[in-house]
Simulated assay, not measured.
Amino acid sequence: MARALPTPALRPLLPADVPVLAAIFTASIEELTGDDYSEAQQQAWMDAAETEEFGKRLTADLTLVATLDGSPVGFASLRGNDHIRMLYVHPAVAGQGVATLLVDALEKLAGGRGVQSLTVDASDTAQGFFAKRGYIAQQRNSVTMNDEWLANTTMKKTLGAAQ
Rank of each mutant, 00 (worst) to 15 (best):
Y37V: 04
E53R: 04
T59Y: 12
S71K: 15
D47W: 03
F54N: 06
G80H: 11
A27K: 09
E31K: 11
V98A: 07
A48F: 10
L106N: 03
D36S: 10
A27W: 03
T67K: 15
M86T: 13
A60E: 09
Q41Y: 12
A23V: 07
M46N: 05
A27I: 06
E30H: 05
S71Y: 14
A44P: 04
L101D: 04
F25K: 03
A49H: 00
L58R: 01
D61F: 12
R79T: 01
A48H: 09
S71V: 15
L64T: 15
G70H: 08
D104C: 02
T67A: 13
L21H: 00
A22K: 00
E50P: 01
I29T: 00
A66R: 09
E31F: 07
K56R: 11
L32Y: 05
E52W: 04
V20L: 05
L58Q: 03
D69E: 12
M86Q: 10
A27G: 01
K56P: 02
L68K: 11
A60K: 06
Y88E: 10
A92H: 13
A22D: 02
D104E: 14
A76F: 01
H83K: 12
A40N: 09
V103F: 01
V89P: 06
Q41V: 05
V89L: 11
A99K: 09
A49R: 00
V73D: 06
A99P: 10
N81K: 11
G95M: 12
D82P: 05
P72H: 14
A27L: 06
E53F: 04
L102Y: 07
E30M: 04
Y88F: 13
P19W: 03
D35Q: 15
G34K: 13
L64N: 09
H83T: 09
T100V: 10
T100A: 07
L101Y: 03
A22R: 00
R57P: 05
T33Y: 07
A94G: 14
Q96N: 15
S77L: 09
T59G: 06
H90D: 08
D36G: 07
P19C: 12
T33K: 06
A48I: 14
G34A: 11
S28W: 01
G70D: 15
H90S: 13
L101T: 07
L78Y: 00
D47Y: 00
I84D: 13
E30D: 09
R85N: 13
L21R: 00
N81P: 07
A23E: 06
M46F: 11
F25P: 00
R79M: 02
A99N: 07
R57Y: 06
F75S: 06
K56M: 01
D17I: 00
Y37E: 06
V103D: 02
W45D: 09
V89N: 05
L64H: 13
Q96F: 15
D82H: 12
F75K: 08
M86N: 12
L78M: 13
S28N: 06
G80I: 12
G97K: 10
R57G: 01
S71L: 15
A44F: 11
R85T: 11
G97T: 05
L62H: 04
G74Y: 15
